[in-house]
Nucleic acid binder design. Sequence first.
DNA 1: CGAATGCTTCGGTCTGGACCGAAGAATGCT
DNA 2: AGCATTCTTCGGTCCAGACCGAAGCATTCG
Lengths: 252, 252
Amino acid sequence: MVVSRDGVLRGDADVAAVAALMGEAARASVLVALAGGRALAASTLAAEAGVAPSTLSGHLARLVDGGLVTVEASGRHRYFRLAGPEVAEAVEALARLAPSRPVRSLRQASHAEAVRRARTCYDHLAGRLGVAVLDALVASGTLRAEPDPTGGADPILGAGRARRYLLTDTGRAHLDRLGMSLECAGRRPLTRYCLDWSEQRPHLAGALGAALLDRFVARGWVIRGERRVVRVSEAGRAGLVRDLGVDPAAVA
Amino acid sequence: MVVSRDGVLRGDADVAAVAALMGEAARASVLVALAGGRALAASTLAAEAGVAPSTLSGHLARLVDGGLVTVEASGRHRYFRLAGPEVAEAVEALARLAPSRPVRSLRQASHAEAVRRARTCYDHLAGRLGVAVLDALVASGTLRAEPDPTGGADPILGAGRARRYLLTDTGRAHLDRLGMSLECAGRRPLTRYCLDWSEQRPHLAGALGAALLDRFVARGWVIRGERRVVRVSEAGRAGLVRDLGVDPAAVA
DNA sequence: CGAATGCTTCGGTCTGGACCGAAGAATGCT
DNA sequence: AGCATTCTTCGGTCCAGACCGAAGCATTCG
């Protein structure tokens, strides 16, 4: 309906150009990773796509040039984002007619649910559980959410969202009482956030995030499974709710 | 939302594959030409795309293999059609974010409307007028719509639609009275239909279709414009409605 | 200030695939 | 049957572009 030949509506050279831009594995990977409105750094995207940073840099330049993606420089990072909802719609339209739609087996579906529920992200917790833990730490005053000091919008979380999380004195004492203090953070930042892709909200990373996962595992609160999935034990359910104030729904 | 990494929702290899299939000028041209549900023959599509038939044959095979296009053999022709509405939607989604969206000027828009109203298709009439003329000839009994003798579905019009139009005896007499009989059809089939891309319905082609356009022009009923557009004169409006029973709305 | 980090540009290699023409199979017309 | 038309397959050429590593800027941190 929209398209037709004869010069009546639109030529087709454009369609081929846009499709060609999407029709390469690394670039498609970028667009898919960016679908949902996330902004991600070039290095992250390169790891996702499984190509060298230099290669992906070229791809990103072409995507930006083609108007599918926008860039925002922030320090020495450059955050890439889909240029608009139309781009996401096009990606989804293509995904809908992807060949060999992998028959989502029951087993795969339940694995997917497990991943969303609780998993590791590098060395810290992620998924609904990871997000709930950060929420609980903020709610209990252990961490204090600090708005962006520069006043600018955070490229990942958007304007008005916390840009860093500070460990309070009472919070440090609290963790000490629980036997969860950190020996030495070394050069690593104590707290960092990491945007959870399945929850679209931040979870706790950094040295504290790693320490917490470490303790949880040591106490048998969470058990590592395969493919980064973790399972919460009965003791973990009780302990997380009692000692950290985690939302019971997140460990159910 | 639909798409994400980690095997949770869907990998992206499929997106890249589909997009790559669309990301080539000749193949995109095919998809655009087929948008709207038309079924076209390989040779037609090759001419559209501006490549050798052998080249396009390869492209069509890939499109069929990729599930974007279906093929139906009919005699020595093979008619290609989009595999489904999802394909058209994807093409349109891509077209929407095509770069350098050519600003549709008022002039272009009115030209488009004129093309839809009445134009020539090779040597016969097309557009709303062409379709209306065929309708009128059938309604008046000049032509008799013959269902597909083989009982199979017509590759262009679908099952249950007329596959050929026969000139009846009374119809021939009627055309004689109007001074519109044909001298000699030669080797060319007397009647053929041709699917009108703007109306999605058949208009009259073949020797009779050509003869009618010829007479209409000779009598000054229609005036040829540029770019295949034709305009109906005041006399034409009256004559077409009075002598042929054409729907007045089609010549308004 | 240097060192580390994040990203881009450049040079060189290599493969996929787009293209054509010629030959071959299938079908319809006379 | 014989011939024309339509489409596909095959062989061979050629170019776009995907890829990597090394080197070059810019920024941040110690």
